[in-house]
């Protein structure tokens, strides 16, 4: 046995994980090689040091803190559930500005520039082929895929462009699609309202749960401030409509106290731009 191979096996030797034959060969090598013997001695000292590290214990009030968070979450979730119910209350809830989660711009695909709001040739092609051809769209080098959903009219797109410029600095959801996954970026802001303190962590948690529920992957999470965070996450393309629907529920309550109105109408227009980018 040569030193490089012996070096690789020392770790398993330490844990007594070697097959008898390998173990015998290694021991034979160790008899003859002082360098490897030294390495083994060092590894043993290392293991001793690590095993002796103090165990850091949870603070005495740990369980209480967990229970508190569970309670706060239940309260938060009941508010969120309230958002989902279509009712005149929604307007009032929006005024609370509990969660400002505006989904604005979108459309980053392979070559992500949102310069045009017209149907691209790729989309036309996809429409002709049906939804299963979406993958081809994803691979397309067409610069922009900003599809017009049936309900979105051309005038809406003009207005949409304004909305993007108005909000893209602070809020936004952008989506880019690969062949079988969609990458989303979202900015959300949690606000305190009527004495109810919402931690950003809780808002983040709702979003990560949504992502987690479809086995999505959180790629990046940046807290810009105490009440604002940006996400990048990847979800299976097939789950995209469901995720957007859930996020849309959050977005439906978006209303910053001092921001120009972002209402459900805007969200629909925006989503109509997002939707065509994914496999449905």
């Amino acid at each position: 046995m040569e030193c490089p191979q012996a070096k690789e096996l020392l770790s398993q030797y330490l844990d007594d994980m070697l097959e008898p034959q390998e173990k015998a060969q290694l021991e034979q090598h160790l008899e003859a090689c002082s360098a490897c013997k030294d390495k083994l001695a060092q590894l043993k000292r290392y293991a001793g040091t690590m095993a002796a590290l103090p165990k850091v214990k949870a603070p005495a009030d740990f369980l209480e803190k967990v229970q508190e968070r569970i309670e706060r979450r239940s309260e938060f979730e009941s508010v969120i559930r309230g958002f989902f119910k279509p009712s005149p209350m929604k307007t009032k809830v929006a005024a609370l500005a509990m969660v400002m989660f505006a989904m604005i711009a979108v459309y980053k695909m392979i070559a992500p520039e949102f310069t045009a709001y017209k149907l691209s040739p790729a989309v036309e092609k996809r429409k002709a082929l049906g939804s299963t051809a979406s993958e081809e769209v994803f691979k397309s080098t067409a610069p922009v895929v900003a599809d017009a959903a049936p309900r979105a009219e051309s005038r809406a797109f003009t207005a949409e462009k304004e909305a993007v410029s108005a909000y893209s600095d602070t809020l936004g959801l952008t989506a880019s699609a690969a062949a079988n996954a969609v990458e989303l970026q979202a900015t959300l802001t949690a606000l305190d309202a009527q004495g109810r303190v919402l931690s950003l962590n809780e808002v983040i948690d709702v979003v990560t749960r949504i992502i987690g529920s479809v086995e999505g992957q959180l790629i990046e999470l940046t807290r810009d401030s105490d009440n604002q965070a940006r996400f990048t996450f990847k979800i299976p393309a097939i789950a995209y409509p469901a995720v957007v629907k859930q996020l849309e529920q959050l977005a439906a309550v978006s209303a910053a106290p001092d921001a120009p109105a972002v209402d459900q109408g805007w969200v629909e227009v925006i989503l109509s731009l997002i939707r065509p980018l994914v496999v449905e």
């Binding site: 214990k57 949870a58 968070r69």
Partner: peptide, 27 residues
Amino acid sequence: QDRVFNLCYRFMGNYEEADDCAQEVFL
């Protein structure tokens, strides 16, 4: 809690972060 806390501490390298992280684990 102690095992999870210690794991989080060794993973994150920071007590405060470990505390928040361990709470999240139990949530």
